[in-house]
Amino acid sequence: MKVNLSEAKNIIKKYCAKEGALIPLLQDVQAIYGYVPEEVVELISKELSIFPVEIYGVLTFYAQFYLTPRGKHTIKVCQGTACHVMGGGEILSYLSDTLGIREGETTEDGIFSLERVACLGCCGMAPVIMVDNDFYGKCTIKKMEDILSNYQKEKSI
Protein backbone atom coordinates (compact mmCIF):
# COMPACT_ATOMS: atom_id res chain seq x y z
CA MET A 1 0.00 0.00 0.00
CA LYS A 2 1.35 3.36 -0.95
CA VAL A 3 1.35 6.04 1.71
CA ASN A 4 -0.04 9.43 0.79
CA LEU A 5 2.52 11.93 1.98
CA SER A 6 0.68 15.20 1.40
CA GLU A 7 -0.78 15.42 4.90
CA ALA A 8 2.56 14.57 6.44
CA LYS A 9 4.06 17.47 4.51
CA ASN A 10 1.53 19.88 6.01
CA ILE A 11 2.28 18.66 9.52
CA ILE A 12 6.01 19.04 9.01
CA LYS A 13 5.50 22.56 7.75
CA LYS A 14 3.54 23.41 10.90
CA TYR A 15 6.33 22.28 13.19
CA CYS A 16 9.51 22.98 11.26
CA ALA A 17 10.39 26.20 13.07
CA LYS A 18 9.61 25.02 16.58
CA GLU A 19 12.02 23.88 19.25
CA GLY A 20 11.56 20.35 20.62
CA ALA A 21 8.89 19.60 18.07
CA LEU A 22 9.74 16.02 17.16
CA ILE A 23 7.38 14.30 19.61
CA PRO A 24 4.28 16.41 18.94
CA LEU A 25 5.03 16.13 15.22
CA LEU A 26 5.10 12.35 15.41
CA GLN A 27 1.95 12.38 17.54
CA ASP A 28 0.16 14.35 14.82
CA VAL A 29 1.46 11.98 12.16
CA GLN A 30 0.13 9.03 14.08
CA ALA A 31 -3.23 10.73 14.62
CA ILE A 32 -3.62 10.95 10.82
CA TYR A 33 -2.17 7.62 9.69
CA GLY A 34 -2.90 5.49 12.74
CA TYR A 35 0.80 4.64 12.90
CA VAL A 36 4.08 6.18 11.80
CA PRO A 37 4.91 4.89 8.30
CA GLU A 38 8.51 4.39 7.23
CA GLU A 39 8.01 6.77 4.31
CA VAL A 40 7.02 9.57 6.66
CA VAL A 41 10.10 8.98 8.82
CA GLU A 42 12.26 9.38 5.71
CA LEU A 43 10.45 12.56 4.80
CA ILE A 44 10.86 14.07 8.28
CA SER A 45 14.52 13.13 8.27
CA LYS A 46 15.04 14.93 4.99
CA GLU A 47 12.96 18.01 5.68
CA LEU A 48 14.16 18.66 9.21
CA SER A 49 17.72 17.31 8.78
CA ILE A 50 17.40 14.82 11.61
CA PHE A 51 19.02 11.41 11.26
CA PRO A 52 16.47 8.56 10.94
CA VAL A 53 18.22 6.83 13.84
CA GLU A 54 17.23 9.70 16.09
CA ILE A 55 13.62 9.54 14.96
CA TYR A 56 13.48 5.78 15.44
CA GLY A 57 15.14 6.26 18.80
CA VAL A 58 12.22 8.38 19.90
CA LEU A 59 9.61 6.15 18.23
CA THR A 60 10.79 3.01 19.94
CA PHE A 61 11.32 4.65 23.33
CA TYR A 62 7.72 5.75 23.81
CA ALA A 63 5.03 3.12 24.12
CA GLN A 64 2.51 5.30 22.33
CA PHE A 65 4.06 5.06 18.87
CA TYR A 66 3.39 2.26 16.37
CA LEU A 67 5.44 1.33 13.36
CA THR A 68 2.77 -0.92 11.84
CA PRO A 69 -0.89 -0.29 11.05
CA ARG A 70 -3.38 -0.86 13.86
CA GLY A 71 -6.57 -2.90 13.92
CA LYS A 72 -9.97 -1.31 13.46
CA HIS A 73 -10.59 -1.47 17.21
CA THR A 74 -7.94 -1.16 19.87
CA ILE A 75 -8.57 -3.01 23.09
CA LYS A 76 -6.61 -1.61 25.99
CA VAL A 77 -6.55 -3.85 29.00
CA CYS A 78 -5.68 -2.12 32.23
CA GLN A 79 -2.85 -3.78 34.10
CA GLY A 80 -2.59 -1.17 36.82
CA THR A 81 -2.29 -2.22 40.43
CA ALA A 82 -5.98 -2.11 41.29
CA CYS A 83 -6.93 -3.99 38.15
CA HIS A 84 -4.19 -6.53 38.78
CA VAL A 85 -5.46 -7.17 42.30
CA MET A 86 -9.02 -7.47 41.01
CA GLY A 87 -8.13 -9.97 38.26
CA GLY A 88 -7.07 -7.87 35.25
CA GLY A 89 -4.31 -10.35 34.42
CA GLU A 90 -6.86 -13.07 33.74
CA ILE A 91 -8.82 -10.73 31.50
CA LEU A 92 -5.70 -10.02 29.45
CA SER A 93 -4.74 -13.65 29.07
CA TYR A 94 -8.29 -14.58 28.15
CA LEU A 95 -8.40 -11.92 25.42
CA SER A 96 -4.96 -12.87 24.22
CA ASP A 97 -5.92 -16.57 23.99
CA THR A 98 -9.27 -15.91 22.38
CA LEU A 99 -7.98 -13.48 19.79
CA GLY A 100 -4.84 -15.49 19.21
CA ILE A 101 -2.58 -12.45 19.50
CA ARG A 102 -0.18 -11.15 22.09
CA GLU A 103 -0.20 -7.62 23.42
CA GLY A 104 0.99 -5.15 20.83
CA GLU A 105 -0.28 -7.33 17.98
CA THR A 106 -3.24 -7.13 15.63
CA THR A 107 -5.59 -9.93 14.57
CA GLU A 108 -5.19 -11.23 11.04
CA ASP A 109 -8.58 -9.92 9.99
CA GLY A 110 -7.46 -6.48 11.10
CA ILE A 111 -10.33 -6.00 13.54
CA PHE A 112 -8.63 -5.95 16.92
CA SER A 113 -5.35 -4.73 18.32
CA LEU A 114 -4.54 -5.68 21.88
CA GLU A 115 -2.63 -3.53 24.34
CA ARG A 116 -1.86 -3.28 27.99
CA VAL A 117 -1.99 0.02 29.83
CA ALA A 118 -1.15 0.98 33.38
CA CYS A 119 -4.14 2.50 35.16
CA LEU A 120 -6.95 4.03 33.19
CA GLY A 121 -7.88 6.11 36.21
CA CYS A 122 -11.13 4.31 37.07
CA CYS A 123 -9.72 1.90 39.63
CA GLY A 124 -13.09 1.81 41.39
CA MET A 125 -14.47 -0.11 38.44
CA ALA A 126 -11.53 -2.52 38.28
CA PRO A 127 -10.82 -4.58 36.29
CA VAL A 128 -11.23 -2.14 33.43
CA ILE A 129 -10.78 -2.38 29.68
CA MET A 130 -11.13 0.29 27.07
CA VAL A 131 -12.20 -0.41 23.49
CA ASP A 132 -11.33 2.62 21.37
CA ASN A 133 -12.78 5.40 23.52
CA ASP A 134 -15.32 3.38 25.50
CA PHE A 135 -14.68 2.13 29.02
CA TYR A 136 -15.95 -1.17 30.36
CA GLY A 137 -15.67 -1.67 34.10
CA LYS A 138 -16.08 -4.61 36.52
CA CYS A 139 -14.98 -6.95 33.74
CA THR A 140 -15.49 -10.69 33.84
CA ILE A 141 -14.62 -13.37 31.31
CA LYS A 142 -18.32 -13.63 30.49
CA LYS A 143 -18.52 -9.92 29.83
CA MET A 144 -15.50 -10.15 27.52
CA GLU A 145 -17.28 -12.73 25.39
CA ASP A 146 -20.23 -10.39 24.96
CA ILE A 147 -18.07 -7.38 24.18
CA LEU A 148 -16.01 -9.22 21.58
CA SER A 149 -19.05 -10.64 19.89
CA ASN A 150 -20.69 -7.21 19.80
CA TYR A 151 -17.75 -5.71 17.98
CA GLN A 152 -17.48 -8.72 15.69
CA LYS A 153 -21.17 -8.53 14.83
CA GLU A 154 -20.79 -4.91 13.92
CA LYS A 155 -18.36 -6.05 11.23
CA SER A 156 -20.82 -8.37 9.55
CA ILE A 157 -23.55 -5.70 9.42
Partner: peptide, 11 residues
Protein backbone atom coordinates in the same frame (compact mmCIF):
# COMPACT_ATOMS: atom_id res chain seq x y z
CA UNK B 1 1.23 10.52 36.90
CA UNK B 2 2.79 7.21 36.03
CA UNK B 3 2.10 5.17 39.16
CA UNK B 4 -0.14 2.38 37.84
CA UNK B 5 -2.88 2.74 40.43
CA UNK B 6 -3.05 6.43 41.02
CA UNK B 7 -5.31 9.07 39.55
CA UNK B 8 -5.21 11.99 42.00
CA UNK B 9 -3.57 14.40 39.61
CA UNK B 10 -5.92 13.46 36.85
CA UNK B 11 -8.96 14.22 38.99
Amino acid sequence: EGDPGAFMDRS
